[in-house]
């Protein structure tokens, strides 16, 4: 089972990220869960979202406390949230940053293998707004290979309709442009 945790701010689409990857996994015939950190939604406040993906039925309904992969949607979240908390031994972190993996590992004492991508820049160019959730999924799929890339593109088409093109471009660019540390 792959367990995922997304860190973002209310309104940035962390929950949508978790949902999209779960929906794509289910479309692929797998089992998946996606859920928010339960509570009142507040725009701008640090939020988390979670997902689980497995080949068999998932019955565990606890919060994800030992994620295999963490996605950090907003570079500034690293100041206030401990994204490394509970990360599994071979875990990885996909971080939206324009800096190098070594630089941010040093500054925030990050654990695990790091995948970095300048998602703000990509989202700005492709979508026209700095909403990085779909962009970050590109890097996550590249790093984990858990879902077929095309299935996620299908989910983006369904979810975003006429806005899908920009999101798909951003997703694909992040897939190609992210820097993946060797495991």
């Amino acid at each position: 089972m792959l367990e995922l945790r997304f860190h973002g701010r209310g309104g940035q689409g962390a929950v949508t990220s978790a949902e999209l990857i779960a929906l794509a996994a289910i479309a692929q015939g797998k089992f998946a869960q996606a859920f928010p950190s339960f509570g009142p939604e507040r725009r701008g406040a640090p939020v988390m979202a979670f997902a689980r993906i497995d080949d068999k039925q998932i019955r565990n309904r606890t919060a994800v406390s030992n994620p295999d992969a963490v996605v950090v949607l907003d570079p500034h979240i690293l100041h206030i949230a401990n994204s490394s908390d509970g990360l599994s031994k071979d875990g990885l972190q996909v971080v939206n940053t324009m800096r190098s993996a070594d630089e941010i590992r040093e500054e925030y004492n990050l654990k695990g293998r790091l995948i970095t991508v300048d998602a703000n820049h990509i989202a700005e160019q492709e979508i026209g707004r700095v909403i990085t959730n779909t962009t970050m999924l590109g890097a996550l799929i590249r790093a984990t290979g858990v879902i077929e890339r095309e299935l996620l593109v299908d989910e983006l088409k369904v979810r975003f309709g006429r806005l899908a093109e920009g999101n798909i471009n951003a997703f694909n660019r992040a897939y190609e442009e992210c820097c993946v540390e060797k495991g």
């Binding site: 978790a18 949902e19 779960a22 929906l23 289910i26 089992f31 998946a32 869960q33 996606a34 859920f35 928010p36 339960f38 998932i58 309904r61």
Partner: peptide, 10 residues
């Protein structure tokens, strides 16, 4: 509530 109501699953 939440545990099921806000869960995306098959």
């Amino acid at each position: 509530g939440f545990i099921l109501s806000h869960m995306v699953e098959p």
